[in-house]
């Protein structure tokens, strides 16, 4: 029996009204793989990311996570989302909860973990991302880099099978980008399956198995990172790389 890919998207299409945001998307991510998604603003990267845990429903096509088709809205979908970690550009930490409470909320509510166990695991995770000493503060009291690391810890607390990152460093001041990328690189090395929307080429080269280039809702290239950055095949990718390299 061959193992099912962790993420499988087959002929996925989606519109926002008139706008065709995803056009016939076919994408597989094997367990343990790290895939970086890049492309111009508005090309549909966030939407792609968000369809995988059905924060955005699709018009047609199928999406499977670990061999299971995405359920319709309801309890089963919540169960699937618990297995898919997501990290947002704007962190989205729960503003009324402390950092530790952010990390323990879902394990206690969804997995029915006891408070003591959830806190023990939560503190260990916060140590891993280097912010255990901030555990009793509220999100607004932390720097952007610290907030994003807390958000990663919150997602990891559910022991997800796969992690989705949507431009996790785009909202950060430059000096905080690396502390977040370091956590992500370690996660990748440890074998986590990851789909990462980012323009950080250093990360893509260091940690990614593949680079997927999107433009106008289509996957235009799906290549090895080194090959993609040194010799992109399509004109659209060449054009895009020219822009992000020159500024």
């Amino acid at each position: 029996m061959t193992e099912a890919p962790m993420i499988r998207m087959v002929s996925v299409d989606k519109h926002f009204g008139e706008l065709h945001v995803l056009r016939d998307i076919n994408l597989e991510v094997a367990a343990g793989q790290v895939v970086v998604v890049l492309g111009p603003s508005g090309s549909g990267k966030s939407t792609l990311c968000r369809t995988i845990n059905r924060l955005e429903p699709v018009d047609s096509g199928t999406i499977e996570v670990d061999g299971q088709r995405l359920p319709e809205e309801g309890k089963a979908l919540a169960g699937l989302r618990a297995d898919v970690g997501m990290v947002f550009q704007s962190f989205n930490l729960f503003a009324h909860k402390t950092i530790l409470q952010n990390v323990t909320l879902a394990p206690m509510k969804v997995r029915r973990t006891s408070k003591a166990d959830a806190e023990k695991a939560g503190i260990a995770l916060l140590e891993r991302v280097g912010i255990a000493n901030q555990r009793d503060k509220y999100p607004a009291q932390l720097s952007g880099g610290q907030q994003q690391r807390a958000a990663i810890a919150r997602a990891l607390a559910m022991k997800p099978k796969v992690m989705l990152f949507d431009e996790p460093t785009s909202a950060l001041d430059p000096e905080m980008v690396n502390e977040v990328l370091d956590v992500m690189t370690t996660l990748a090395k440890e074998g986590m399956t990851m789909l990462v929307v980012t323009h950080e080429m250093g990360f893509a080269r260091r940690a990614a198995n593949r680079v997927v280039f999107m433009s106008d809702g289509e996957i235009v290239e799906d290549a090895d990172p080194e090959a993609f950055f040194t010799a992109p095949r399509s004109d659209r990718a060449k054009d895009f790389l020219g822009k992000i390299l020159t500024h």
């Binding site: 618990a82 997501m86 947002f88 989205n92 958000a151 919150r154 997602a155």
Partner: peptide
């Protein structure tokens, strides 16, 4: 806020 909550499985 609600999106993050749904994303962790609530």
């Amino acid at each position: 806020q609600a999106e993050a909550a749904r994303a962790v499985g609530l």
